[in-house]
């Protein structure tokens, strides 16, 4: 504590403005040590990394230049992925609305909100790819399995956000409508929906965006779409075609991002 411009009055006791947080420091130190230990057990060594780099360079070399000659295969995969994403988003969002409403603890009795929250938690437990594997086993290869998998994850995500949005609304207009003799449905239509609508549009466009990305992935495990094409190309070592698919996916995701932004602006 050196203070040249200090007041003449002597400081009564030295006060530390930034006291050290020893437990936090210990935790960071422990984390660093564990990371080193984990790396040693997994044989993550420098030599292994350098060897990997060389392999990666050869892989990239075989990818270039991208091969766009199988246009029909590429387009068919992309269109199927788009269809999977749009159908899954539409069905998922539609189903998520009642589930989200039921899960809102400020409007619903416990005996209804807890099962609904349980359903949401179940839908959110697994990644879409794992759910897709389950559905591929259940209903067979193809787009249906991918759609069902994405519907499940859409319900989990959207219903949770809807429930949270409803739990944050003002209850005062609801009180006024109940006082006027409104039924529950009337309250939902005029007091709940208007208060959550613009946030809901945001959730829905985000979910469409996210389903677009995930729809390219469920194909890898047999859920149809461009993912299936990608997986086949990998297995056939058609790395130049793989790169073409990856570029096409990036283009679609980018277009989806623009579309979602446009939808949000329209509804504002």
């Amino acid at each position: 504590m050196s203070a040249p411009a200090a007041a003449p009055a002597p400081a009564p006791a030295r006060r530390d403005p930034f006291p050290p947080n020893w437990p936090a420091r210990a935790a960071w130190g422990g984390l660093a040590l564990y990371a080193l230990y984990a790396a040693s057990t997994l044989e993550v060594t420098w030599e292994r990394f350098v060897y990997g780099l060389g392999n990666g360079a050869r892989f990239i070399g075989r990818m270039l230049p991208p091969d766009f000659s199988k246009t029909e295969l590429l387009l068919r995969g992309l269109i199927e992925s788009l269809e999977i994403a749009v159908i899954a988003s539409a069905v998922g969002i539609l189903l998520a609305m009642p589930v989200g409403l039921m899960a809102a603890r400020n409007l619903m009795p416990r005996w209804l909100s807890w099962p609904a929250r349980g359903l949401i938690a179940l839908c959110r437990s697994f990644h879409a790819v794992i759910v897709a594997i389950l559905f591929v086993k259940a209903v067979g290869f193809g787009a249906l399995a991918g759609i069902l998998a994405l519907v499940v994850s859409s319900i989990g995500f959207i219903a949770k956000l809807i429930a949270e949005a409803i739990e944050e609304i003002s209850l005062k207009p609801i009180e006024a409508m109940r006082a006027a003799g409104a039924s529950f449905g009337g309250v939902v239509a005029m007091a709940v929906v208007p208060q959550v609508l613009d946030r809901f549009v945001g959730f829905a466009t985000y979910q469409l965006d996210s389903n677009l990305r995930n729809s390219t992935m469920v194909g890898i495990v047999g859920g149809g779409g461009i993912g299936a094409t990608l997986f086949t190309a990998f297995q056939k070592f058609d790395y130049d075609f793989v790169l073409a698919i990856l570029i096409a996916i990036i283009g679609v995701i980018f277009a989806g991002e623009l579309l979602a932004g446009w939808i949000r602006d329209t509804f504002k």
């Binding site: 006024a176 006027a180 003799g181 409104a182 039924s183 009337g186 005029m190 208007p194 208060q195």
Partner: peptide, 19 residues
């Protein structure tokens, strides 16, 4: 007041008819 902020004045008035 307990109005629905995001609804129009007309819509708020008609909320009185929800019964």
């Amino acid at each position: 007041y307990n109005l629905v902020e995001r609804l129009s004045v007309m819509e708020n008035l008609l909320c009185g008819r929800l019964g």
